[in-house]
Measured scan of single mutants.
Amino acid sequence: DLRKKIVDLHKSGSSLGAISKRLKVPRSSVQTIVRKYK
């Protein structure tokens, strides 16, 4: 699940930009998912 991957990467200390590059999703999507998770 993409959300879980993003949250896991964020927990392990990756920046939003790094996560978005790695998973090839827009940075804004990463930000939204991380914000919802918090």
Rank of each mutant, 00 (worst) to 15 (best):
18 A>I: 07
22 R>E: 13
31 Q>R: 15
12 S>G: 10
30 V>H: 03
19 I>N: 00
23 L>R: 01
29 S>Q: 13
8 D>F: 14
26 P>A: 11
15 S>W: 03
23 L>A: 00
30 V>W: 02
28 S>E: 08
33 I>T: 06
34 V>R: 03
1 D>K: 11
12 S>V: 06
2 L>Y: 08
16 L>S: 06
1 D>L: 13
17 G>M: 12
18 A>M: 10
28 S>R: 13
27 R>W: 10
2 L>F: 08
14 S>Q: 14
27 R>P: 05
31 Q>A: 14
10 H>Q: 03
28 S>I: 08
8 D>G: 09
10 H>N: 03
38 K>G: 10
37 Y>H: 06
16 L>E: 05
25 V>L: 10
11 K>Y: 07
22 R>Y: 12
24 K>W: 05
14 S>E: 15
12 S>F: 07
30 V>E: 02
17 G>V: 10
10 H>E: 02
9 L>I: 01
26 P>M: 05
32 T>K: 15
38 K>H: 15
12 S>M: 12
38 K>D: 07
21 K>E: 08
18 A>D: 11
32 T>E: 12
26 P>G: 06
21 K>F: 05
1 D>W: 15
4 K>V: 07
18 A>H: 09
9 L>N: 02
20 S>I: 05
10 H>L: 13
2 L>E: 03
8 D>E: 14
20 S>M: 06
34 V>Q: 01
22 R>V: 12
31 Q>P: 03
7 V>Q: 06
17 G>P: 05
4 K>C: 11
13 G>R: 02
24 K>Y: 05
11 K>A: 09
29 S>A: 14
29 S>K: 15
37 Y>Q: 03
2 L>V: 08
37 Y>G: 03
24 K>R: 12
24 K>M: 09
18 A>N: 10
27 R>I: 14
8 D>I: 12
23 L>Q: 00
5 K>G: 04
3 R>K: 10
14 S>M: 15
17 G>R: 15
21 K>Y: 05
3 R>E: 12
37 Y>T: 04
35 R>T: 07
35 R>D: 09
33 I>S: 04
20 S>W: 00
23 L>I: 04
19 I>K: 01
7 V>H: 06
18 A>L: 08
30 V>Y: 01
38 K>A: 11
30 V>R: 04
29 S>R: 15
10 H>T: 04
29 S>N: 08
12 S>R: 12
22 R>F: 12
33 I>D: 01
10 H>G: 01
6 I>L: 01
20 S>Q: 03
4 K>I: 08
8 D>Q: 13
4 K>D: 09
20 S>V: 08
8 D>R: 11
1 D>Q: 12
3 R>T: 11
37 Y>P: 02
30 V>K: 03
29 S>M: 15
36 K>T: 07
9 L>V: 00
18 A>V: 08
36 K>F: 09
32 T>Y: 13
16 L>Q: 06
23 L>N: 00
10 H>W: 15
28 S>G: 09
33 I>F: 01
6 I>N: 00
7 V>T: 05
4 K>M: 10
2 L>R: 07
36 K>I: 09
4 K>E: 08
11 K>L: 14
3 R>P: 06
31 Q>W: 08
5 K>F: 11
6 I>D: 00
26 P>E: 05
32 T>N: 13
24 K>T: 05
31 Q>F: 06
11 K>N: 11
8 D>H: 11
14 S>V: 15
32 T>I: 14
16 L>V: 14
23 L>P: 00
30 V>G: 03
12 S>Q: 13
20 S>A: 14
38 K>T: 09
36 K>N: 10
21 K>W: 05
30 V>T: 01
20 S>R: 04
33 I>M: 05
38 K>V: 11
30 V>S: 03
10 H>M: 11
32 T>P: 03
18 A>F: 11
19 I>L: 02
1 D>H: 11
8 D>M: 14
8 D>N: 10
18 A>C: 11
20 S>Y: 00
